[in-house]
Design a protein around this nucleic acid. Structure first.
Lengths: 162, 162
DNA sequence: CGGAATTCATAAGCTAGCTTACTTTATTCC
DNA sequence: GGAATAAAGTAAGCTAGCTTATGAATTCCG
């Protein structure tokens, strides 16, 4: 097996640890921006982090329901909005779902999502160059790009070797 | 104004004509494949062609309702499936909507969609090179890509000059 | 203290995307 | 003619994504 770039979480990795790190990271970001990472927002983020795959809003609700009184949809949507605004969560358009953001890339850089149709997990790869060339091509048609959605479905390395 | 690549339909173009061409094209494709372009399928395609923007399934139903007894959802979903299978219609994932396929590109080539958030129209640009480089990057992580979704929202040339 | 802003709870509802299940109607082809 | 296939009609329903509206709790801050 060749060395793989670590876009995907290894199957046996320490889940709790990386969840905890995600939360810590969020704390820092919010502190920096003097934003309020409230318990609910933290719970929603935790649910996304510990699943390591995109969750629909109702899946998030189901997760939260396991550790607290079942929240109303509006509650998690508000939390998700907050998390997205602060770059802690991505929306996966092709799934109407939400994914805790990998922390390897900085805010501005474009990302492409690799969605494994086998295990459902999602990797992120930097797509800055690609986004640039797409953006250039788009501009040549007179189009001014704002938001790019680059989502690739396929089969991840872990599932292939199984 | 600089010359623009014709990714978007010009605002004042002959709508009926390009719709008719789209239908003709579909007839040919279906004939070649000995597929059956039935009246309903044709109507659905016509609705998409003449709107020049992605329509949700229910919008298609509304369109059809203007020229025939209102079809049930299942009816248009069946027609849409057929049209997609024959490469006549794209699905815009980020919108849960459907778009009559531009006929400039061949089947295999990848396409990026430019979605104007102002007028709602959609342009297509070839994204073969981009898709290739994305695909390569993905493979380096051990991921085997199958289907790429590249959808860019922004503002089209026509809306900008207004 | 008192007003403003933030955050969340509660309740209710809408819509649209999509499906299941079953029947009816051509059409084809032997 | 009669079986087999393809296409469409009919009916019903589910779910999940997302919103509107309103009021309570908390905190901030002057």
């Amino acid at each position: 097996m060749t060395a793989l770039k670590p876009a995907f979480p290894a199957p046996g990795h320490d889940h709790d640890r990386c969840t905890a790190e995600g939360i810590e990271h969020a704390e820092r970001i919010c502190a920096d921006r003097s934003q309020n990472l409230t318990p609910i927002r933290r719970q929603v983020l935790r649910a996304l982090l510990s699943s390591h795959r995109p969750l629909g809003a109702y899946e998030v609700i189901d997760e939260l329901a396991r550790v607290m009184p079942r929240p109303a949809p509006i509650t998690v949507y508000r939390a998700l909005d907050f998390l997205m605004q602060n770059g802690l969560v991505h929306r996966i358009e092709s799934r109407n779902a939400f994914l805790a953001c990998g922390r390897e890339h900085d805010d501005a850089s474009a990302v492409a999502f690799l969605i494994c149709e086998c295990c459902g997990s999602v990797g992120e790869i930097p797509a800055t160059a690609v986004a640039q060339s797409l953006s250039d091509a788009a501009r040549q048609t007179g189009f001014t790009p704002k938001l790019s959605v680059v989502e690739i479905t396929g089969v991840c390395g872990h599932c292939q070797s199984t």
